[in-house]
Amino acid sequence: MQEIDEETEIGEVYMRSLIRSQLRLALIVSVVVALLVGGLPILFVLVDLDALQVGPVPLPWWILGAAVYPVLFVIGWVFVAASERNERAFSDLVERP
């Protein structure tokens, strides 16, 4: 940990690798969200789902109104687990005796 406090080159490398891995994780999450959720308007244009009536409303209502939320939660869950893993790896690295 001394390396980081004293801003030595090795400390800088440790810190930069933590930031990189966390940023990569955040970018992966945003790409997944952009594809899964941000892709929906395009999907609705390309595929005519309006004809599929499920209960009182067409299928897109169920996708947007209900199915999206558990998907968002699961992505969040995976992100939290992965970012805590990155931090543990960093802690183990700098705490090595």
Binding site: L25, V29, S30, P58, W61, G65, V68, L72, G76, F79
Partner: peptide, 21 residues
């Protein structure tokens, strides 16, 4: 109608982006 359902979806997804970054 249906295009307004994007409001609650976006207001929730905003927290996912916030969580990530």
């Amino acid at each position: 109608g249906a295009d307004m359902v994007w409001f609650p979806v976006g207001w929730t997804a905003g927290y996912l982006v916030l969580l990530a970054f």
